[in-house]
Write a protein that binds this DNA or RNA. Structure first.
Length: 211
DNA sequence: GACCAGGCACATC
DNA sequence: GATGTGCATGGT
């Protein structure tokens, strides 16, 4: 039986460390986590570059923008109107509750903070967990569409497995280690992008195959 | 031109 | 509760 630890090992030896999340600051990770919802990362980079070029990648400055102006700046990500609203909801949450302090938000107990994040409209489980793991270094495993597809193809879950079930599979069978969770999820995304494609999977070349 | 991308909320049954 | 739909750009 293929264990998760073995899968990680194979992926690590094939691809090497992934150095996620690609961002200059925890705040940039948070913004990216919302912008990347159902969107190609290359488009997110364009939007983040727009914000940086205008020196707007700061909580207060971003929050001061109108939804309309913000939407224009993040246009390349797609769903820009709804994401502008979601980003503003999150900024309000971050400013009001934590004064936009990474230290303060990090100090809240993890499960409590997770629930707190999920209460923000526009932040679902994957976005909340991405923020917890990649911005705040909390040992929470992130589940995304690639992860589910890969586990399905390798018969490690059933089609109807929900987010919680898949997340528990990782968290109950691996050491709760931030570095491990970080790199493992990034490796799964890498595998998904290159081999475990939706309609044209390259299963014959998949690094998880034996030999 | 169709399909896909590091989801989420909401309507409707 | 589960199933369907809108949101939208940019690359392959």
């Amino acid at each position: 039986m293929k264990t998760l630890a073995l899968i990680y090992k194979k992926l690590y030896y094939h691809f090497g460390p992934q150095h996620w999340w690609p961002a200059d600051s925890p705040f940039e990770v948070m913004v990216g986590a919302i912008l990347t919802q159902n969107t190609n990362w290359a488009n997110v980079e364009k939007a983040i570059d727009n914000l940086k070029a205008n020196r707007l990648l700061e909580p207060k400055k971003l929050y001061r923008l109108s939804s309309k102006r913000l939407a224009q700046l993040i246009r390349p990500v797609g769903y820009y109107n709804i994401k502008a609203r979601r980003l503003r909801k999150f900024l309000k949450f971050f400013l009001k509750n934590f004064h936009a302090s990474i230290t303060k938000i990090s100090n809240q107990a993890v499960q409590e903070l997770r629930q707190h994040l999920l209460s923000v409209n526009g932040i679902g489980q994957e976005t909340a967990d991405s923020i917890l793991l990649y911005a705040l270094n909390k040992p929470i495993f992130v589940i995304d569409a690639y992860t589910k597809r890969i586990l399905l193809r390798h018969h490690l879950i059933k089609e109807d497995a929900n987010y919680e079930i898949i997340q528990n599979l990782f968290m109950q069978n691996l050491k709760k280690d931030v570095k491990l969770f970080n790199d493992f999820h990034a490796l799964l995304v890498r595998l998904g992008k290159e081999f475990c494609l939706k309609n044209k999977p390259k299963c014959n070349q998949c690094p998880l195959n034996d030999k």
